[in-house]
Design a protein around this nucleic acid. Structure first.
Lengths: 109, 109
DNA sequence: TGATCTAATCGTATTATTGCGATATAATTA
DNA sequence: TAATTATATCGCAATAATACGATTAGATCA
């Protein structure tokens, strides 16, 4: 049917998948790296840095914002984006727990 | 156009996004958790555990396999799936580096 | 106020994803 | 060999995602 059955899964499974899906795109990874490396924030510089149209960058920023991974502050004519620390920590926690739940082989198929 | 411009991004950006995209679905997270908790491997048990059709589970397994996150070994009539340790480590490394590149606020917008 | 600059949104074309019934494949058992 | 069991694949319908030109909205500057 083309519709994910979210009601079947746990809150945490859905929560982690939403956060990961927001990051799981090379353009959004590049945007986040740019935001992080610029220490503070950026805005339309991203359009120049990456080779994508302004509308496309804006859309990616919106998705990252919807997922709560970044936040945008209006600064005059520009908009300054930066990481949302709370969500970043949450993601680190959720994904860390998930990854650490697997402890090596010691016998498999 | 609806086609991700992979040629614009670095190998690592694309690599990480492929791995994350494979995991960024609640059903696939549930499948991985099931595989991990069963220590060894599983196969069609997943169809019973999760509430999805056999064709759907098989498709999700295929995607996880294509990304290199799991491997399947034929065991008679059944197929035994388990985590691919190398890819798991790679993901842990790539994502860990990515997450750690952000070091708290100390002044933002 | 009018011009300018920045960013968001709309509309649209293209492609990908999700889910499942039906069918095919492959190994095992009777 | 025929029946059974376990998976994979095909085909399809519905929905989501990607990208971008064009337009809109909002703030700043002359």
């Amino acid at each position: 049917m083309g519709l994910t059955k979210t009601e079947i899964f746990t809150f945490e499974q859905n929560q982690l998948s939403v956060l990961l899906k927001a990051i799981a795109h090379p353009a959004r990874i590049a945007i986040l790296q740019q935001i992080i490396s610029a220490n503070a924030c950026i805005c339309g510089d991203l359009v120049e840095e990456l080779g994508l149209a302004q509308a496309t960058i804006s859309q990616h920023l919106k998705e990252l914002k919807n997922a709560g991974i970044i936040q945008g502050a209006i600064d005059g004519v520009k908009v300054c984006y930066c990481i949302e620390p709370k969500t970043w920590k949450l993601l680190d926690q959720l994904f860390g727990d998930f990854m650490r739940s697997y402890v090596d082989p010691k016998g498999c198929c």
